[in-house]
Design a protein around this nucleic acid. Structure first.
Lengths: 228, 228
DNA sequence: GCAAAAGTGTTTCCGCTACACCCATGA
DNA sequence: TCATGGGTGTAGCGGAAACACTTTTGC
């Protein structure tokens, strides 16, 4: 039998690319491996899949065990199963990505990891195994997805400024956008609601705060979001 | 050990959604199961993954064993692994889709299948297990992909008419397109080369034949194909 | 008053859409 | 000569892109 009594499927794992956005920068949460093989290398958080556990649930579990967060946007990216991707034995991994707001979570090492850290997307270390490739796939999927679905809000606090939203799009796609065109486009979509609140304590004109309009989210799913 | 000596990974399979295009219709190649469970049901062709076999190679093997075809466009779609998706035990399947030209292949039953048939996309039977869901995912992926990458040619003979190409796009996306607008768009892209040949033996004005311009394929990968 | 980011309109251009008639052939 | 699909052009519209200055606040 392929599935032993201890409830783990040893040739199947899930790895999770956790995206966060802070300081105008797209970041990824990595762990430092505390055990061989590749001890001391940075890697994507991941785990073995349990016998009585759906794939999506396994990915959620990885995220929760690491960050304590639940009800987070997650999506399957791709499955990586080259024969030699793991040095000790054949293991296939189903990759997911997650979008979280890093303000809600401050990483803390523990368990099988000796360190946990956010890395800016443009300054990543070499990762263990084929994790750089997995990360590339996930980023690529995020970049394409955000052009057509309003998933960017998952990375922001509930109340945000339009400049924050623009920086997010710029960080994810690595482009510069025109401020006026961006604002017009977003506002025309009616995807955000302006609040009677302004960011305080900034040494310049206080920007207005907005929130995401959940009601229009679904209508826009078919329409598409940004095309550049 | 999860991987027994016979070289099969019994909790991991691959299933393949094989698309073909003929008679102006998008079709899918299905097999009739010759063994329990769900004997007699139509299903996607699939197989267990071997211990020393990459996932992509397993999918290619499924296609080759069924159709004899090699060097075919294939792409991973999604991995399905809900605990109860297969009635006898836990099995996770990595789904692929393939695009083939059905003129090159006439199905013949044999081996573990009692029947093999092309089914038009708009007249599909109920499939075994979660195969209807897998098929939906694959079709959806094909529909979205073909809008931005020139993969449609994989489904056509080497020399084709622009009307054939248009019918293909219409069949895949289930829409009607304007003939003049379609032709202009395709020709503007420079993705096809007109030949000095015409289809013969038709009881109307013989249409000109075109071939795919492989050289421009790569340039267009980034640009996008059709937006409607 | 200076630094720093917020906020705001108009014009131009290009691509998409809609639309109807003549052409070449086989039967 | 008729039936069938092949093949062609133009005008109008709407969304995308380019572009610069004034406003408000903290220090």
């Amino acid at each position: 039998m392929d599935i032993p009594e201890d409830g783990k499927i040893k040739n199947l794992s899930t790895d999770c690319v956790i995206f966060g956005f802070s300081d105008e920068t797209l970041k990824i949460l990595l762990i430092k491996l505390a055990a061989e093989p590749e001890k001391g290398e940075w890697a994507l958080p991941g785990n073995i899949i349990m016998r009585q556990e759906n794939l999506d649930d396994a990915a959620k579990r990885v995220l929760k065990e690491l960050t304590g967060l639940e009800k987070v946007f997650m999506e399957q990216v791709h499955t990586f199963g080259n024969v030699n991707r793991f040095p000790l034995f054949r293991i296939i991994t189903v990759a997911y990505y997650a979008l979280i707001n890093p303000d809600k979570y401050h990483p803390e090492a523990g368990g099988r990891t000796s360190d946990v850290r956010w890395f800016p997307i443009e300054d990543l270390p070499d990762l263990a195994f084929d994790h750089n490739k997995i990360l590339d796939y996930a980023l690529n999927k995020l970049q394409r997805k955000i052009r057509f679905e309003p998933i960017g809000f998952e990375l922001l606090p509930k109340k945000f400024t339009l400049t924050q939203l623009q920086s997010l799009y710029e960080a994810i796609n690595g482009v510069k956008l025109d401020k006026r065109n961006f604002r017009r486009k977003i506002l025309n979509m009616g995807m955000v609601i302006e609040l009677d609140e302004y960011k305080e304590g900034v040494p310049y004109r206080p920007p207005q705060l907005y929130k995401f309009d959940k009601a229009k989210y679904d209508k826009l799913k078919e329409t598409g979001l940004l095309s550049n």
